[in-house]
Nucleic acid binder design. Sequence first.
DNA 1: CTTGACCTTGACGCAAGGTCAACCCTTCAT
DNA 2: ATGAAGGGTTGACCTTGCGTCAAGGTCAAG
Lengths: 264, 264
Amino acid sequence: MRQAEAMLTISQLAAYAGVTVRAVRHYHHIGLLAEPGRNQSGYRIYDAEAVVQLIRINTLAAAGAPLTRVQELLDASPEAFTDGIEKIDKDLRAEIRRLQRLRQRLAQLAAGDHPALPPSVVGYLERLRSIGIDERYIELESNAWIMIVAQVPDQIDSVIADKHVELDDPVAVRLYQLLSSALDWSVDDPRLVELADCMEHLMVRAVEAGETGDLGLDNQFLDLLETSADNASPLVTRLRSILQERGWNGWIRAERTPTNTVHA
Amino acid sequence: MRQAEAMLTISQLAAYAGVTVRAVRHYHHIGLLAEPGRNQSGYRIYDAEAVVQLIRINTLAAAGAPLTRVQELLDASPEAFTDGIEKIDKDLRAEIRRLQRLRQRLAQLAAGDHPALPPSVVGYLERLRSIGIDERYIELESNAWIMIVAQVPDQIDSVIADKHVELDDPVAVRLYQLLSSALDWSVDDPRLVELADCMEHLMVRAVEAGETGDLGLDNQFLDLLETSADNASPLVTRLRSILQERGWNGWIRAERTPTNTVHA
DNA sequence: CTTGACCTTGACGCAAGGTCAACCCTTCAT
DNA sequence: ATGAAGGGTTGACCTTGCGTCAAGGTCAAG
């Protein structure tokens, strides 16, 4: 009777330690918290030691330690215990940093930013935007770059550097502006000729500069643009035929005729 | 063929988005990410849109949103979407604060502090320590207080205030010092008489002051001390008989004989 | 003497994947 | 051309840390 007064029921214990009754029973079940004595009716009765132990368990578990690890720690020597806590604390700090970085990503998501393109690519798209390229075209580019980055993530920065060099040529700027506005052209728009001129100009320069287009990946990129453009508009068919009339074989790829092929 | 070059396999997709292949398939399974097309051999092939979507999913899920909630958000209007993100961010901030508080608790655990006693009790134990009480006795007190707090958490501060008043009496201080050192006494230690004197003194004062000991909880506390003391040492038996010879009935409780009972 | 709040064990459910198994493609070095 | 490596496919069970019934026994209060 005296004993009983100084003892706690499971719900009192749980409430004190800030856990659920179910959790306490779970801890008993897996042997993490020793089964206490029972009273005459089979109720578990707990003493202060159980409270202390349960609070220890809860603290460690709440900090993210798996219950098996908690078990180990509680059984360990004091040094191993503090070592273990230090480790958990380290993980905790890492987790906090992770969550903080995540908040930034969330903010970008909310702002509608395109996620997960490397900074170099984002910078390049910014530059396109700054020369007045239509947002829809940027979207096409963005998607294309995602695929490229997915396939060759490590070469991306050098590729982007090349693209920046390309944009130093006013003709290239003009080309992108035309491509962008071409999204709204009708099939027989006369500006297509100017577009073809720009392309030819750039292709000639590329051949002169000895750019064989053999990066492998740049080819992929061009294939890609080609594909999406093909799907996008019949204008492309016209463009292709214009260039073919002038003796250009591949569309964007710089090779002229079977006679003066640039690469095998 | 052109198509295929601009497409990703499931492992490429997963790697790009920073998730496992299994997770992607899981998302397909629960309808969170649309099943893409297949190539001739039945492989799933993904486009840029899938990458973007998967990164959105991963960001939200990593932030702790349940996948069903992620689903809802992705299907929701832009306003609902940003609202939802705001909510998630709020939860994230709360989680970060929780983890930071947890780091403090962990530090206390590592330091060997007694966890989860309210500040008032900790202060009281400090005071006992400061008057030279043995650490083992403090441990007994600590356990006792845990049980008390567990049973009546809201009255604890006023109880502790009373205890502080009690300790303003030098006799009480002396009593605790004797109790503390009694842990090492042999059964027939002569200082037990002084201990009994102190107790009697305090009990007389209590009766004079009209303290009926009717807090209900204070009684519990005393029962408790009594119990643990009983278990602790045969000295208690002697002490009890000494006090009974002097006409004191209950041990620590302030009631003298059947004739002048203080409470019903 | 009946409520209503606890307690008991036992069993199933859940999220968010991990981890086989058993099999089919593709590719590359031999 | 061949066979091993290294993708991919479905399907089904395993895991963690409990939540949530179900089907009762217990206990204090009106």
